[in-house]
Design a protein around this nucleic acid. Sequence first.
DNA 1: CAAAATAGATTACGCGCGTAATTTTGTTTC
DNA 2: GAAACAAAATTACGCGCGTAATCTATTTTG
Lengths: 129, 129
Amino acid sequence: MIRISEAESRVMHVLWDNAPQDAEAIIAALAGSADWQDKTIKTLLNRLLRKGAISAERDGRRYLYAPVLTREDWQADESRSLLERAFDGRLAPMLAHFTRHEKLSEADVAELRRLVEAIERRQTPRTPQ
Amino acid sequence: MIRISEAESRVMHVLWDNAPQDAEAIIAALAGSADWQDKTIKTLLNRLLRKGAISAERDGRRYLYAPVLTREDWQADESRSLLERAFDGRLAPMLAHFTRHEKLSEADVAELRRLVEAIERRQTPRTPQ
DNA sequence: CAAAATAGATTACGCGCGTAATTTTGTTTC
DNA sequence: GAAACAAAATTACGCGCGTAATCTATTTTG
């Protein structure tokens, strides 16, 4: 599993939103959110490359970078890590935590209800045939 | 916010399950799960002390350690961190991820349904008065 | 073509972490 | 009381991370 650091993940977000991009564009995209020198971002790009989290295709004198690790796979890795580390792998307590401790908008609640119902339909066919 | 490392959190789990305990008991409790020398665990205890995550009360020639950081607070910190880092702070996509990608037992689903309904009762009183 | 600019590659450096070993201090035993 | 033991305190060390600066090679400009 490709493990990326917090700082590296911020660079990944830029590429997940739009790829491929060259270093200059990535630096520009991060100018607002992160207070980093351009060299810092180059370092992060190189580390991501070495880890195989992104690819680099030469384009003249520059490289075009693109994600290899997908956002979904990374979210899955991080989520599973939290689940194991903090909730002993048990999903229900974790979901209970989120619903109790995070403020849910009405839209969140509606979404959650839809999810539950979708799962129930898939999992426990209520009236067979 | 008290930040503890992965290894440190394993020591915390022992104390969350049972406190106070002396170093020897903690070492014994970890003997099965972690493959650590006793010195390693002592180091982790000292780091947790310096961070203020645990307390140590002298008891003869030993210390009795107890959590200061609670399991619930730590779970909340870690959960929020994941939510921000990986899901841009938006809860619905995160919940969707969990329900889609993790295998839910029937008990999980039932629990989830109870949660949704509890939230709905609290949040959107369906038929006022 | 020489000089300047620039993208990328290499190197840097302090800090926390994982993983202990060594040293000190206080207690128990002969 | 000296020796042995044990618990705690201190020190160690390589690695990744955050955060760059410096070096190198190539392109652009005058």
